[in-house]
């Protein structure tokens, strides 16, 4: 008995249809890029959270991940490079009833936007930050960034990056984030659940997702396709909840330690935000 695979334009409703701007698909991200996978996990995590979609706003910065706000059918803001968290801080403080989510990349959040990242963590601003870490500046053509591992090649470190990278999860935790988790784009279930937890967490919640960038980082570091990187994640990542994030950086190869590292309580701002619109 052969179950027909319906190909071509289907009329059956995609489960995320109400939250994705399908009129703007196919999106601009490269074949094998993990961003679409992370975006899907975010939307499913949002659905699971029970938050009222109309009260959720997404703010993104500049870069490949920055384009995510444009595909999300919620109130969404595509702001300037590095300033998404600062913009989101103003939005949240002015309208505490909103659930404000920042969806941006490693370069946007930790290089040019690093100052706002660490201060938002320090203040424990009631925001959820989704950091898609693909270890390079993809949009501008594959330069190394603040998280690029030592010895990794990029279009501006062709003989191998000599700088010591940030460990994003450790940086967020050290700044004061009260929820920090790291996943890879291959862990679709864990991402979804963790994103729901982060969305419902009061205070500064930070989810780092290691994501494939076939066009640059993968191609220049012996994992030329998105599938190669996803396979690498599946065979090299382990889940160790509660690990001290300082001890688990991510190298150009070797093991990737994932899991929920931090989940603590601390006073957050604005304290006046009520129960997050039925969350």
């Amino acid at each position: 008995m052969n179950v027909p695979v319906v190909t071509g334009e289907t009329t059956e409703k995609h489960p995320l249809e109400d939250y994705l701007r399908f009129d703007r698909l196919p999106h601009i991200w490269c074949p094998g890029c993990g961003l679409g996978t992370v975006l899907g996990a975010f939307l499913r995590g949002l659905l699971q959270s029970g938050l009222t979609p109309d009260k959720v706003a997404v703010v993104s910065g500049i870069g490949c991940t920055g384009r995510s706000a444009g595909y999300i059918k919620l109130d969404s803001f595509h702001t300037t490079h590095g300033r998404a968290i600062a913009f989101a801080t103003g939005l949240k403080l002015a309208k505490p009833e909103l659930k404000v989510v920042v969806f941006s990349g490693d370069g946007d959040l930790a290089a040019i936007g690093g100052n706002h990242l660490i201060h938002a963590g320090r203040r424990n601003i009631d925001l959820t930050v989704l950091c898609v870490n693909n270890f390079n500046y993809g949009m501008t053509g594959g330069q190394f960034g603040p998280t690029t591992p030592v010895a990794a090649r990029s279009t501006t470190s062709r003989t191998g990056n000599i700088e010591n990278p940030f460990n994003m999860s450790a940086l967020a935790a050290a700044s004061g984030a009260t929820y920090v988790a790291r996943w890879t784009a291959a862990q679709v279930h864990q991402m979804e659940r963790s994103i729901t937890e982060a969305l419902l967490k009061r205070g500064f919640s930070f989810v780092e997702v290691i994501s494939p960038c076939p066009t640059y980082y993968g191609r220049m570091n012996r994992l030329p396709t998105g599938l190669d990187q996803m396979r690498y994640y599946r065979s090299n990542s382990v889940v160790r909840h509660g690990t001290n994030p300082n001890e688990v950086g991510v190298g150009v190869d070797g093991q990737i330690v994932t899991g929920k590292f931090i989940d603590i309580e601390r006073p957050y701002l604005p304290s006046s935000g009520d129960g997050n619109n039925g969350g």
Binding site: T10, L25, P31, R231
Partner: peptide, 17 residues
């Protein structure tokens, strides 16, 4: 029933994997 919107597929093979 599995539905594939052919114009959106970019042949990345994640689903196959």
């Amino acid at each position: 029933q599995v539905f594939v919107t052919t114009e959106r597929c970019k042949g990345c093979r994640f689903c196959i994997e």
